[in-house]
């Protein structure tokens, strides 16, 4: 299918994904820095504290994937690693409780901390955050009459993440602000309790990476997709046009005043390929994706801003390359 520009493409056929003919993949291309800088672009489409969408254009999938992988598994973050249980009379088991606490996202900038050395027995103020959680469920003395709701009958019948209390170590209180340390979300349910149940825990958070445990991953997920493209090969009008429109995500196909379908914006198409179900319009479209246009979506768990996470990932890749080159140079 000859398309006008030079963009490398993947064609979404009915039963498989196919490269354009004469496209042998970018692995074979000779890489030149000049060409790369000319082509490479980053466009930030959308960003807030938790989520960012941006495009990497003109880059090889290996790089894009490397950033994705690094964000998932090697960009560090802080998470509760050790739970000292002084008392747990709730029905939740110690291990399960510890596991649940570990998965609570913490807002603490991991860049301000160091990894705890493997042989260290106790943490220092540079590598550890300490919290305590002391909750006791009691009967609500001022309970309203005729209410049988748990929240009226008992005090502290649900333990939430907000009930963690930061215990600054050493100089930490002056270095970090109280608001910067603690759980990202105050309303994560940790356990349910009944009168007589009590939790007395001290929680130790350390810096770690997602490779060791998913709880250290700074992102909920980080992934990319290729830019979708829809090309109409013939005129589609009337009822066929509305049918065509319904086969794509809303906003992908527009219908002009004369009832002709046109591609409005294929970017947010879900690539469901449902158009292939209708023989009458099957031939009217070519579905493809631009192979070097990566639409990244980074969902931060909240400790770091998503743009920071990406930059951290890039730094890690840089450091890795550097140390690899250093290793190579040693042999020369």
């Amino acid at each position: 299918m000859p398309l006008k520009d030079e963009k490398p493409r993947l064609f979404l056929e009915e039963f498989r994904v196919k490269n354009a003919p004469n496209d042998y993949g970018m692995a074979d291309e000779k890489w030149s820095f000049k060409k790369f800088t000319k082509k490479f672009r980053i466009v930030i489409v959308r960003m807030d504290n938790f989520e960012m969408e941006f495009d990497l254009i003109g880059i090889q999938p290996a790089f894009a994937n490397a950033f994705r992988r690094l964000m998932l598994s090697e960009v560090p973050s802080m998470a509760i690693e050790k739970v000292m249980i002084r008392n747990n009379t709730s029905i939740i088991q110690d291990e399960v409780l510890a596991h649940r606490l570990g998965l609570i996202p913490l807002k603490a900038d991991p860049r301000l901390f160091e990894y705890r050395p493997e042989d260290a027995t106790a943490g220092t103020e540079f590598d550890t955050l300490e919290f305590t959680m002391k909750v006791k469920c009691t009967v609500n003395k001022s309970q309203p009459k005729d209410s049988y709701r748990a929240e009226d009958l008992y005090e502290n019948h649900s333990v939430y993440s907000s009930q963690m209390k930061w215990q600054p170590m050493g100089n930490q209180a002056s270095v970090h602000k109280e608001a910067d340390i603690g759980p990202v979300h105050p309303d994560i349910l940790v356990s349910k309790m009944r009168p007589g149940h009590e939790l007395d825990l001290s929680l130790v958070a350390v810096k770690g990476i997602g490779k060791d445990h998913a709880k250290f991953s700074p992102v909920a997920t980080a992934s990319y997709r290729l830019l979708p493209e829809v090309t109409l090969t013939r005129e589609v009008r009337g009822s066929e046009a509305t049918l065509l429109q319904s086969c794509f995500a809303p906003g992908v196909i527009g219908i002009d005043s004369e009832g002709r379908a046109y591609v409005r914006d294929a970017r947010y198409d879900t690539c469901s390929r449902n158009v292939y179900r209708y023989d009458e319009i099957k031939d009217a479209v070519v579905l493809s994706r631009v192979r070097d246009h990566f639409i990244f979506n980074v969902e931060s768990v909240g400790a770091l801003q998503p743009n920071v996470i990406f930059v951290e990932a890039v730094k890690i890749l840089r450091d890795k390359c550097k140390s690899f080159l250093d290793e190579l140079n040693k042999f020369n």
């Binding site: 979404l12 498989r16 196919k18 999938p61 290996a62 994937n65």
Partner: peptide, 13 residues
């Protein structure tokens, strides 16, 4: 459509 987590490329199927 799935992407390989190892190579980062789209899976053919």
């Amino acid at each position: 459509i799935f992407y390989s987590g190892i190579t980062g490329e789209t899976l053919e199927a």
